[in-house]
Structures are given as structure tokens and as C-alpha cells.
């Protein structure tokens, strides 16, 4: 089973990289860009075929390593779930 995980900075946490990207977009002439927040994206392949079990495992994977929950939130999306749910 494949999972897509996005890790994003929590609201209120300063994102200087996002700010720099926002500035560069302005330099390129893109108007109306009101904000950029940079995050991370992971694709994880799991042997698990049960969606609920996979989600539980991924939750632990995110909390223990992929995200630092002091400053980051994470979202898990399961792809090609066998059950078709």
C-alpha cells in the first residue's frame, strides 16, 4: 500500500524559506501571491494491506520521525487501498 504524507509548518511558525520564495516570485513578476509556506512531501510504500492498520502505523511514523510536532503538522493520504473504501 502506498501512502502520501505532507508535513507542513504550524500556523504562526515563521517560515523564512517560504518568505524568500514569496520574494523571488515577486521578482519574477508574479503578482498577487499573498503568501508561500514551504513543506515536505513523502511517498511511503508499506507491506500492510489493511487500511486501518496502515494508517495507525503511518501515524506513528509521522509522529516519531517524519514530523517534528513542536512546529509541524502532518497529513496522511492512503493510495490504492485494497478494500476500495
Amino acid at each position: 500500500m502506498k501512502a502520501r504524507i505532507t508535513v507542513t509548518l504550524k500556523n504562526g511558525v515563521l517560515d523564512p524559506q517560504g518568505k524568500a520564495i514569496e520574494g523571488a516570485l515577486g521578482s519574477l513578476g508574479f503578482e498577487g501571491v499573498e503568501g508561500v509556506r514551504q513543506g515536505k512531501y513523502f511517498e511511503v510504500d508499506l507491506a500492510e494491506t489493511d487500511a486501518a492498520k496502515a494508517r495507525a502505523a503511518l501515524d506513528e511514523i509521522c509522529a516519531k520521525l517524519l514530523a517534528n510536532t513542536v512546529i509541524e503538522n502532518y497529513a496522511i493520504e492512503l493510495a490504492d487501498a485494497k478494500s476500495g473504501k
Partner: peptide, 8 residues
């Protein structure tokens, strides 16, 4: 946590 330096 130690984040990226504010001025990058």
C-alpha cells in the same frame, strides 16, 4: 527545536 536561521 532549532529552526533555520531567520535570515537564512
Amino acid at each position: 527545536v532549532l529552526m533555520r536561521n531567520a535570515h537564512l
